[in-house]
Design a protein around this nucleic acid. Structure first.
Lengths: 267, 267
DNA sequence: AAAATCTGTATTATCTATAATACTAGTTTG
DNA sequence: CAAACTAGTATTATAGATAATACAGATTTT
């Protein structure tokens, strides 16, 4: 009975690469149950490593309970497409659907400071080059497992309206609107990146893991930037879900988000 | 003048990890121009490797032209937040905005076959366990650089309506609607994953790079699944952009996609 | 029953990373 | 100017990971 929750990574650097790649395919759904995995020899060839190295990666996967190895037969996937409890982000609120799913959420404030806005933030928010912003980094956990690493930049004059404690307990949206900010527009950009040493430790994952990266710029009615968010999310814990419906006729036919029906819908 | 386009990766496995992590931060916008990078000694400590290894990673970054090193002063970022030509995906068409931006797009068919649907596909599309599907994998390139690796699963009876050549030249949407399929609903799930050896080669990137992962299930008016798409996108070439506006009043206030106004558009 | 394929196990040479250095030459800060 | 940074350049010993092999035992296929 191992309760290691996917943290039994092998020692070698190449072995870790193989381990992470295979683990991503399993938890990501590309590999389901059954007789799936190729033989150790073939894996060694496709990854360009020796069989010993593949072996170390498979040992770690077996420790995690993700695969099952039987001599003579082969290696099979076990936990196929049954991720623990993937938190999804709701489209219409821009907030993770946590409360609705009975998750207990906690936020931990990692750093908190005021200072000049970094270049890319000032550019994205149309700030003066020397304008001070509040920079806060916090990690959110669901049921004790961290799933997001968020860094927010808020112009100092706005940020003075709430306290450091507020940040650790409440979502930034609520604090901004409470401060009298009239939110009007937001622009999100979703991408992927690798986990650096600091965020890897904060999220309890291995350096070099894949992360979902989200950049968000929020503006008020005057077009002034009021929030810049740089969020990193664990793909095994978090997904961006968007249900869409096809509307319109002829050339104007296009997609629109299906609001109010997420995921389980029976219909 | 190096035209290596980010393919000068160092030899050691640990050095590659440092290289990829730093490169992601630079092309991802977390590190802009200026005096940014910490000293080699500090980098070695935070990454948990020796200074020699950090050095190898920095050598490769310098070869790529991403950083500039000056003895005594430090290491600075050069290509900060000016990615080549990031292709964005349009929200309302579910298609990359390529034609509008003057890109020359090519698609290459990597594999093409008919066979029983994999478990996760059959589950997602509500197919019979033994139903045959067409499985096609193709790589799309913009201006000669590959940016997406797409695998589609289409029920065999539908797929017979178009040819193999059609797939290499036209988007699947057009082919489906031409085949008389009434598209009604789609569900997208966005996540991140690591590049395995095969996709890494197909996309011209290093194994272990971060990729944006998109899963899409398209259903017709009867609720039957007509397409399952598993797409992997290079984060340095592709982003999922979504402009949003705040609408509604009071408790019903929520976000909606700002249709028709994307980035550059003039409508 | 034989052949083929797979995991399990072991050994050894080689390559790689690391640590501990030392030193030079630029640059910035006090 | 002097002190305290920095990158650039070496060297060497040691520990560790990897590659290349070989063979035994289990399972499936022919």
């Amino acid at each position: 009975m191992h309760m290691n929750r996917g943290e039994m990574l092998p020692e070698g650097a190449k072995a870790q690469r193989v381990y992470l790649s295979l683990r991503d395919q399993i938890t990501g759904g590309s590999l389901s149950d059954g007789d799936s995995l190729p033989g150790e020899q073939r894996l060694a060839e496709t990854f360009g490593v020796s069989r010993v190295t593949v072996r170390r990666a498979l040992d770690a996967l077996a420790d995690d309970g993700l695969i099952e190895r039987r001599a003579g037969s082969g290696t099979r996937v076990r936990g196929g497409s049954a991720p623990d409890k993937p938190v999804a982000m709701n489209f219409t609120t821009l907030m993770p659907q946590l409360v609705e799913m009975g998750h207990s959420t906690t936020a931990r404030l990692l750093s908190f400071s005021y200072g000049p806005a970094p270049d890319f933030v000032a550019r994205a928010m149309d700030l003066a080059a020397d304008e001070d912003v509040q920079i806060a980094t916090r990690v959110r956990s669901a049921d004790g497992t961290p799933f997001s690493h968020l860094t927010t930049y808020v112009p100092a004059d706005i940020a003075r309206n709430y306290s450091e404690d507020d940040l650790a307990s409440q979502p930034l949206f609520a604090l901004l609107e409470r401060s009298g900010v009239k939110i009007e527009e937001a622009h999100q950009s979703v991408s992927a990146t690798l986990a650096g040493p600091e965020v890897a430790e904060a999220l309890g994952i291995a350096t070099g893991s894949a992360l979902l990266s989200l950049r968000r710029v929020v503006r008020d009615v005057n077009g002034k930037g009021v929030e810049y968010l740089a969020g990193l999310y664990r793909p095994d814990m978090f997904r961006l879900e968007m249900p869409l419906t096809r509307v319109g006729q002829g050339a104007a036919r296009h997609w629109e988000p299906a609001i109010g029906q997420d995921g389980e819908s029976a219909a």
